[in-house]
Design a protein around this nucleic acid. Sequence first.
DNA 1: ACAGGCGAAACTTTATACAATCTTCGCCCA
DNA 2: TGGGCGAAGATTGTATAAAGTTTCGCCTGT
Lengths: 236, 236
Amino acid sequence: MAAKSRPKSDVPDVSDRVSRIREGVTAAILEHRLLPGTKLGEDEIGEIYGASRTLVRTALQQLAHEGIVNIEKNRGAFVARPTPADAREVFEARRLIEPTIVDHAVDAVSPAWLDRLQQHLTEEREAELRGDARASVRLSGEFHRLVAEMSGHSIYLGFLKELIARSSLIILLYRRHDTPACGTDHHAEIVTAIRKRDKQTACAQMLSHLNEIEAELFLKDPAADELRLADVLGAG
Amino acid sequence: MAAKSRPKSDVPDVSDRVSRIREGVTAAILEHRLLPGTKLGEDEIGEIYGASRTLVRTALQQLAHEGIVNIEKNRGAFVARPTPADAREVFEARRLIEPTIVDHAVDAVSPAWLDRLQQHLTEEREAELRGDARASVRLSGEFHRLVAEMSGHSIYLGFLKELIARSSLIILLYRRHDTPACGTDHHAEIVTAIRKRDKQTACAQMLSHLNEIEAELFLKDPAADELRLADVLGAG
DNA sequence: ACAGGCGAAACTTTATACAATCTTCGCCCA
DNA sequence: TGGGCGAAGATTGTATAAAGTTTCGCCTGT
C-alpha cells in the first residue's frame, strides 16, 4: 500500500525510467563529466539508457526547466553555459535562501538527522582524501541539499536543487584556482552549529561559506562573454 | 532576424504551439475557471487547441514542474490542490523573496517602468470597477510578476512565477471572505514607494501586503484535510 | 584559389499507431 | 438486495514512422 504510490513532488519514482535518465544525466553534469556546451543528442542518450527518444526528450525537457540544459529549437539540447550575470544571480539567490533553510533545519534537529549529516561529512572527507574530484564536487552539492531536506520545506528544497545544479556549472566555468578542499571544513562547522541548535552561528556560517565560494570565482564583465567562450572551447 | 529566435529562458516563443497550450491552461487556472482537482484529459485539451497529444503532454509536464498541475501515473493530469502546509510554505517563500525583488526593482526604476506600473494599476482598478473577478484575480498576480520583471533578476522571476501560480490556487481554496478589493490599494502604495525610490517603505509594504493576504486565509490543521476536501466538493 | 549556392545527411519535431493500465458498468452469486 | 468478480471501454504510456529544419560538404562559376 505504502510502496505503491509516491506522490512526492520532485522525485516521482526511482524506478521510473524517465527519472533514471534525468538523474543519470544530472549526475554526469554535476560531476563535471559533461561540460557546458556539450551536445546531448537524443539517439545518443537513448542508446545509453536503452530507452526510446520519447523518454529521453521528456527527461531533457525537465532538465531544461531546471536550468542546467538549454534546448534550442530544431538544434537540440546542450549542457547549459551560465553567464557571469547568471552566476551572480544564482549566488545572490543562494545567499538569500540558504540561511533561511539552515534556520529551519535547526528547528528540525533530531538524532537521525545528525547521524545523516555526520555520515555525509565522513563521505566528503573520504572522497577528498582519496583525491576523487568528481565525488567531491557531487558531495559538496549534496551537503546543501541534505540541509534543505532536513528543513522540511519542500519549496525551498526544489528551488535549491536548481540553484545547486547551476552552481556546479558556474564553479566549473569560473573558478580561479583548483581549490576543491576549501569547502569541507565549512560544512563541518555548519553541522557543529546545527548540532548546538545555534541558529545565529549556523546561518552566519552558511552565509560566509557561500561568500567564500563566490569569492573564488572570476566573474568578469558580461560584455566580454565571447572571449571566455573561445577560452573554454580552446581548453576543451 | 530578431523575430526568428528568442532564447528567452521562460517564454521561448509565443508562436510556439506548446507555449500556447501551456499559457492557455495556465490562464484558465489562474482565473479560477479550472478548479483544483479538475481532470485535464489529453485528448480533451488537444481538441481544444487543435494539437496532438504529444504537444499537450509536453505542456502538461511543464505545468506539473511549475506545481499547478499534478500528474498521477496512468491516471492523468489534474489541477493541483495545495494543502494548508503547501500554502504556508508558499507564503513564507514569498515573504522571503518579494521584498528582495522590490529592493532590486527600486534600483531599476525608469520612466518606462513607472508608466508600465501605472498602466497596470489602472487596469486593476478598471477590472474591479467592472466587477470582473476573473480579470481581477489574474491582474493581481500579474502585478507581482511585473515587479519581478522590473527587478531584472531572472531567477527570482522564475521562482516567483511558480509561487504566484500556486498562490492563486491557494487563495481560491482557503480564502475566508470574498474580499478581492483589499489588495489593490496596497499595490498602489507599493508603486508610490517605488516611484519615490524609497526602498525601506517599498519592501515593508510588500511584506505587509503578503501578510494581509495570508491573514485572509483559513489554514487549518493539516490533519483535517479531508474535511475541507468534502467541503469544497460540496460547494461546487 | 575562393566565394556562393545546391544537395544530401543527420537531427529534431510532430503525428500516429500500438501496448499497458485503470475505470466503469453489468452480471452473477450469496 | 448487496457485494464481488469480470469484461468492455476509455485513457495514458511508449515506440515508431513521417515531416520539416538545419548543417555540412561538394560542386560550379568567377
